[in-house]
Amino acid sequence: MKKTKLLFIFTLLLLFTGCSSYTELNKLGIVSLLGIDYKDEEYHLYINVVEGEQDDGSLQKEYITYDATGESIDEALHFLYLKSNKKIYLSHMDVLVLSEDVINSKLQEIINYLLNHPEIRNNFELVELSSPMNILFEEKIDSKEISDLIQMNQEYMGTSFSVTFEHFLEDILIDKNSYLPLISFDKNLEINGISLLKNLKILDTLSTEETVLFNLLQNNINQAIYKNTTIVKNETNIEIKKNQITFHLKTEINKNSNKFKENLQKDLRKILIYYQDQDYDLLKLKYKMKQNHLSSLEDSNVLFPKTSLKFDIKISYTNSYLERRISK
């Protein structure tokens, strides 16, 4: 009798496990790239779904694009389902592409949607697209192409910066300001710099040259080319005092240029003063002041515009191999 009871319980345990709603892998439409646009009071959703299986049963990675519109993201997703013969699975999404319109009008709703979606993880990258969304998706661009483009430019040129959803969210929660890498698509993908957001709306765009300056200040640069000079190495430290912020830069360049330091200092000051005058905290300096116990976030709003900015730039010059040989 006891054994029968136990057997009954274990049978029930097996029957009621998560297996009741499993989905076969080939029935999943794994979304790698998601695009959201907002036009005429409707969301336009685009997805790239990874399609592994060919008609003959062989495996080859390719993408199928679907698009749909709806008054809400849920409605648009519902219409996407009508077009797809697979379950749309967002857990492996790598890149989310947003248009300027959707950022300016529906960013808050999108953030809420992404946060409340149980499948979506917060480690995907965010990108702003300046060209029409449909062209990008018609070309079946891989999310990896976008991601690699940004990474490579960040690493070797300093002209972009990769932003994950979590990073973006943290910035937004600090002071509602953040930034997104800006790309365009016209036959090829292209980096256009960085888009600056203030109060969840686009404020301005940093050109690729300005992005190099921004990355220099953020200590994000490994290598970059700035005004025909290659920056081989850079290290930036920000020293914060009550009424003064000093940027200590140790920059290594490959060309002996007397004017480089002068120009760099002038340009860095120009960009910082410009946004300081607009009361836009480009480098989250107010929060850094708070972290250093110099002021509360509220007080820093008053202090920040009055804070003087100083630069301490040390330029070193790396001789090329040939030059070293000649000088010997």
Binding site: L12, L13, F16, T17, G18, S20, S21, P118, E119
Partner: peptide, 14 residues
């Protein structure tokens, strides 16, 4: 976090 498609009753029961 783990079983978004399974009915809550079926999660509690086992």
């Amino acid at each position: 976090y783990l079983l978004p498609e399974v009915h809550q009753f079926l999660i509690t029961l086992p």
